[in-house]
Design a protein around this nucleic acid. Structure first.
Lengths: 181, 181
DNA sequence: GTCTATATATGGATAGAC
DNA sequence: GTCTATCCATATATAGAC
């Protein structure tokens, strides 16, 4: 609370005045960050584009977004680890997306799309769970694990920037190739 | 310190007797976990198997290892985030592997192998950095982000087990397909 | 080596002045 | 609304008995 108050340029007591206690402040922060983490990808994946376009758009958008807010995924993950009740709050944050889009949940939309493409022989069969896990892993992990990755690969800050640029350029093809029949 | 002492069945003061302070205890724990996280994958990737076999072996081994010690990656990552000096300790832990193997660093070995395979037209060209990042992402992220993943995909504990089994079976082909020319 | 007792610092939270 | 002052609990760390 002390550090947050200083960062915000106000007094400790004022935080208690607005948020009552530390837990409620934590909750407010979590909701905001969790929503920001899923809003834009969810909109793309639940939209009307082709599978090919969705992959290219999501990778480009997500890598840029994560480069701007690299701590968001690690924060959300560690929060859910420490406070299991956050899982429900995360679902609520994602549920809002559906309301805004006035359509089906993006997972349902994308799942149908994968099934149709597989039946038509345009891609290999893959479950929605594995597909989302693969795309999320490939986009998010390098930012979550940045310090570990940089240590192992001996990258400084500029090296990591180069790495991210290369990744943005090569990742869509990597994923689409993997799906090719 | 209190919780650790209780878990170990000893007194708080005894921890200070052995480790002097909290920082040194943290360091000792980090070294042990970091080494365990890289020892076996490093051995496989730096070994003499074909690229194809390495991918299959690493995925199988790492998914099993992570299922057994799911907190290890998240712990190492968050430690390096909070204490940048840990990056050096991580490199030392990885450096030990090289000494044990009496050969080149696993990254050097694997890098040459990727270059040779690409020149021979057996795989698409890919940098060692992107390759390692891809394999690590796909194996590790689902365990690091397990609670988030389970929330989004609506998986309970048994559902996650099923997800992991499916992943172990399908991930090698996903990766090898992506590399196919 | 292992414990009890204690010194010291810090964190969350509240009371009350302005 | 915003601050100062303060309460209370807990954390790390040390001293010293056994």
């Amino acid at each position: 609370m002390q550090e947050i108050a200083e960062e915000a340029g106000v007094n400790k007591a004022l935080l208690h005045y607005y948020f009552r206690n530390k837990a409620r402040l934590g909750e407010a922060i979590f909701r905001r960050v969790a929503h920001g983490l899923f809003a834009r990808v969810g909109a793309i994946l639940g939209g009307a584009a082709t599978l090919d376009d969705k992959v290219r758009q999501v990778v480009a958008l997500y890598i840029d977004q994560l480069a701007a807010t690299p701590y968001a995924p690690g924060y959300v993950i560690s929060e859910i680890n420490q406070h299991p009740e956050r899982a429900k709050q995360l679902l609520e944050a994602i549920g809002q997306l559906r309301a805004q889009a006035m359509g089906d949940h993006f997972i349902a939309v994308l799942g149908r799309q994968l099934q149709d493409a597989a039946r038509a022989g345009r891609i290999r069969a893959i479950s929605i769970e594995q597909f989302l896990a693969n795309v999320a892993s490939l986009c998010v992990f390098p930012f979550v694990a940045r310090p570990m990755l940089c240590a192992v690969l001996q990258l400084d800050d500029r090296g990591f920037e180069r790495f991210v640029r290369e990744r943005k350029a090569t990742l869509p093809d990597f994923i689409l190739n993997a799906l090719r029949p």
